[in-house]
Design a protein around this nucleic acid. Structure first.
Lengths: 124, 124
DNA sequence: AGCTTATCTGAATATATGTTCATATATTCA
DNA sequence: TGAATATATGAACATATATTCAGATAAGCT
């Protein structure tokens, strides 16, 4: 309803088509910063892989070491280690050394929430 | 504590190292099916891209058409259309035709929840 | 019917990503 | 100290993916 005709947007060459300028401007006003957007998407992304999802799902209940996870997933210990590093880089998983063994566990309440909602989605 | 020594797991050649057999078996008992795991990870994955995340964030508030979103994101309308199809394939976004214009909006309560938790994470 | 607008589709491409292999580091035990 | 165990790291490769371009549909307007 806002604008019946196609309009232009403030741009370099003004070649962008817009139908609802008000909605675009509202979206621009209400959007989070580019930085937050990238961070947030990287959190979803790290959960968006079957292997990694299986890892955090397991860590939801017990802390586990690399070779346990490797046995559980049926993957190389190296592969697990690589993936665990991605989680640690995002501060979603923490580690605890006990002799030669390093135990991994969840380090973020939000992640657990995200997983719970996902599970609710899957199990209807 | 469960087992001090490295053990083998029931496998083809029994070459898998395991430290905590009980934890691995528990994880196997409590894991969701491979099918559900793939589906769930594909939902996280589709949110795990800055452009797509920006799209659904915008759709959280208003329904928008392709060219609005293209103007908002600064991307080609084709690119937006491609991404919207991914959302539709997962039934996370629905569309409504009104003449030539097709309006897109969220079609899944769980996704909105996932986004809210993500935002809570970002905004502390 | 033609013309314009809005969206979709498929091919192409450059880039990102998951896993493996070989090797390095760190800790324990003899 | 040296051997064995647990994990980490870097290179390499095969696959996946996001975007663009060119062309195809589909609806409204004259």
């Amino acid at each position: 309803m806002s604008s019946a005709k196609t309009k232009c947007l403030d741009g370099d060459a003004c070649q962008v088509r817009v139908i609802h300028l008000d909605r675009v401007e509202r979206a621009r006003r209400e959007t989070v910063s580019e930085k937050e957007l990238n961070w947030l998407s990287s959190i979803y992304k790290v959960l968006g892989d079957p292997s990694r999802l299986k890892i955090v799902m397991a860590l939801r209940n017990v802390e586990m070491c690399v070779c346990d996870l490797a046995a559980f997933l049926g993957l190389t210990e190296s592969a697990i280690s690589h993936q665990l590093r991605r989680f640690k880089d995002l501060a979603l998983v923490k580690s605890r050394r006990e002799g030669q063994v390093i135990y991994y566990s969840l380090d973020d309440e939000h992640v657990a929430e995200l997983l719970n909602i996902g599970l609710a989605h899957v199990t209807e």
